[in-house]
Nucleic acid binder design. Structure first.
Lengths: 225, 225
DNA sequence: CAAATAGTGTCTCTTAGACAGTATTTG
DNA sequence: CAAATACTGTCTAAGAGACACTATTTG
């Protein structure tokens, strides 16, 4: 049996509960950056809505716990991977006991969230991030961190989280980035900045008003002709 | 007593051990970016040296655990605050049991580390980060993350972690940044980039070869005249 | 004065940002 | 043709990077 310098074994150390809390972000058809909230189990408290979370189970990774919490609490089976944001470790942050929380962000297309909200309108709520305030625990802060993470990613690359269905026009891509960043972008400059990071399908839109637009896909790793 | 949707209380959940592991980074007088290693307690294993770490104690924050581990294992009492990097969560990553590790980076001046190494040369080792490979667990990866974090911070601001004793010349500041970034910087451009982020003391060096250099301090929050 | 270090002027190249134009569709 | 959308040319301002020069010290 392993013993540390003070002679203790692993079992001698009291252990915290470890939770995950996740800000699920998406961009609605109206161009608003929204976060998914769920009705809290203990509805007698003042704060009714919170980010989905759960306790980590044995043999499970944090990412698996995030996916399980979303499946259980919102019926959501996202295709994308959660990213870690921060560990909240104040020993007194949860009055139920000693609980560490690993905050995550998960970005997923509106089309994967909307059926879920339609199916459980009383338990699941999509709120614009600007209006999702006053959440319990550290959840306000988690939303802030999640939004900052998302914006940093979208400033780097075109639609890194695959929010847009392929193929897409530059116009749709730009409207998405405007929604994520919360600011307008010049169509001409935006085009030049992202064009060499996209794959031109050679096809165009048809039947719409205005000149047909070229259709693009995300750049896969060295996709040959 | 709180019960979750499946009727379980907090005590019904098995809990992982939570550890912290820390890459203590510093820049030596020779301009090498180094990481602090300690001799592992279980020296019968193949990997002899590792990053300092410990298990989180009840009522303690992660940052406190980091400081305690450095005090216990290296006699180090750093003035700076550790920053979180990543949670390593593979359930099988430690054969002693279920252990999560929260990786940290802590940046501290060489003058605070050198006496420690001199006092315990058999237990504490300062290694250039380029040579600190083959460490146990996820420690190689932690060093990588720590270096990336440090470099990102030093690309943003002049000496954000206070590695330099004040006041300092632009030359010393530039040599520090070159050591951290691992690349040469143009003296003239570097000067222009950082000058408005420094506070001019109005004093200069004396007694050195060459023209005396102005002495600067880090910019404190709105330090008036 | 030579060597060494500190600091300034300025040129070039790239990039972000802005504006004005041309191109191609629907109705 | 008007309206709408797609796309291009080009100007400007700011910044990164590079080079050459001037300034002030020691020995």
């Amino acid at each position: 049996v392993y013993r540390d310098p003070s002679g203790k074994t692993l079992a001698d150390y009291p252990r915290p509960s470890v939770a995950v809390d996740t800000a699920v972000l998406t961009v609605g058809a109206d161009g608003a950056l929204t976060v998914l909230l769920i009705r809290r189990a203990g509805g007698h408290r003042r704060a009714e809505w919170a980010l989905p979370g759960t306790f980590l189970h044995p043999g499970e990774t944090l990412a698996d716990a995030v996916r399980r919490s979303l499946a259980d609490k919102a019926g959501l089976a996202p295709a994308t991977t959660p990213r870690q944001l921060h560990v909240f470790d104040d020993p007194a942050r949860d009055d139920r006991g000693w609980v560490l929380s690993v905050a995550h962000v998960l970005v997923t297309p509106a089309r994967s969230v909307q059926p879920v909200v339609a199916a459980r309108p009383d338990d699941v709520w999509l709120r614009p991030v600007t209006e999702a305030r006053g959440l319990p625990f550290d959840h306000d802060r988690i939303v802030e961190l999640a939004v900052a993470e998302l914006r940093a990613a979208y400033r780097e690359r075109p639609d890194p989280d695959g929010l847009l269905e392929e193929p897409f026009t530059l116009r749709r891509l730009r409207l998405l980035h405007e929604a994520v960043l919360g600011e307008g972008l010049h169509p001409d400059n935006f085009r030049r900045l992202v064009l060499d990071q996209l794959h031109d399908t050679g096809t165009t839109t048809a039947g719409t008003v205005g000149r047909p637009a070229a259709l693009y896909r995300r750049r896969t790793a060295a996709a040959g002709a």
